[in-house]
């Protein structure tokens, strides 16, 4: 048993074990993709075949749905809006969460414990119930129908979690590093920025991806705050393809849109996941 030591160094694994590992992952991957695969395949079918009770893998494949989506709806505009909002949410959210997480991890300031609790409590009250007063607040700040309103709202969703997560990561970074920074004449902010953040890369990657997706796929706030088609985000714009809830969604528009909306999320994750391995070596050398 002892030959398969965990960690980043490659050890030989018996073939049987390797097969089992791949088999498990393939099964999991299959379960993960099969509803998405259905969406993908459907996006290439002509409208009338998408939701028929006859199940086919491919039937009269066509790109008509895509050209219809890109040509006749505001999809590209929404795509751009979403990109901007998700990017700003990611940057602002991570900045807030990382600084707060670091302060909580390293300093024992008065108000720290209540603050941690506040973060939790803000996640507990159902947003569906708070949407009316939040709308009024946004209205009095004159932010209705602006991307800013959504960036702020998404930060309230993402930051508490990210702060908690990052606090956990910062906790694992040895305090000697802070001391070293202090000896070198760095202030608390300098230590945080120059020494700690680079070491917390896996944590930052996870939380960055999380904030990105929070903003990318959110519907409830977007549907509350946005009024005009030119301001819609992707996720909310897609809702217009589900015109009357008891009736069917417009699958011919919804499926290609869902495919296209997934791609950027995949790309962002691709970059984020590279950092999932990088942090340890840096942390390891120091301890």
């Amino acid at each position: 048993m002892s030959q398969a030591v965990r960690g980043q160094k490659v050890h030989k694994r018996p073939i049987g074990k390797s097969l089992a590992l791949h088999a498990a992952l393939i099964v999991a991957s299959f379960i993960a993709v099969f509803p998405i695969l259905w969406i993908l395949l459907s996006s290439f079918k002509p409208k009338q075949w998408i939701q028929s009770d006859e199940i086919t893998l491919v039937k009269e494949p066509t790109l008509a749905n895509y050209s219809n989506l890109l040509g006749n709806t505001d999809f590209l505009r929404w795509f751009w809006n979403s990109t901007i909002i998700a990017a700003f949410t990611m940057i602002i959210g991570i900045a807030m969460a990382a600084s707060a997480g670091y302060a909580i991890s390293r300093f024992n300031f008065p108000g720290k414990r209540p603050l941690m609790w506040t973060f939790l409590v803000t996640q507990m009250f159902p947003v569906a119930i708070l949407i009316v007063p939040i709308y009024s607040i946004m209205a009095s700040l004159e932010l209705i129908n602006t991307p800013t309103s959504l960036v702020i709202a998404y930060c309230t969703v993402a930051v508490p979690f990210c702060t908690w997560m990052l606090k956990g990561y910062f906790d694992t970074i040895p305090a000697e590093i802070d001391e070293a920074g202090r000896v070198d004449g760095l202030g608390p902010f300098g230590t945080f920025w120059r020494l700690i953040l680079p070491l917390a890369r896996p944590g930052l990657a996870v939380t960055a991806f999380y904030t990105f997706l929070t903003a990318w796929g959110e519907v409830a706030y977007a549907s509350a705050f946005l009024n005009t088609n030119d301001q819609f985000t992707l996720a909310y714009g897609l809702q217009t393809f589900v015109p009357r809830p008891p009736a069917l969604p417009l699958w011919d528009l919804l499926t290609p849109a869902a495919v296209l909306i997934t791609i950027p999320a995949g790309i962002v994750f691709f970059f984020a996941q590279k950092h999932l391995v990088a942090g340890l070596t840096a942390g390891g050398t120091k301890s």
């Binding site: 009316v132 209205a139 004159e142 209705i144 549907s223 009024n227 809702q239 589900v242």
Partner: peptide, 21 residues
């Protein structure tokens, strides 16, 4: 502005109440 039917009622009430939007 095309507003999804399922949301229009709540959207309109939110906006009318806040006198904005």
């Amino acid at each position: 502005q095309s507003v999804p039917f399922g949301e229009a009622q709540n959207k309109f009430k939110n906006a009318a109440k806040a006198k904005s939007g």
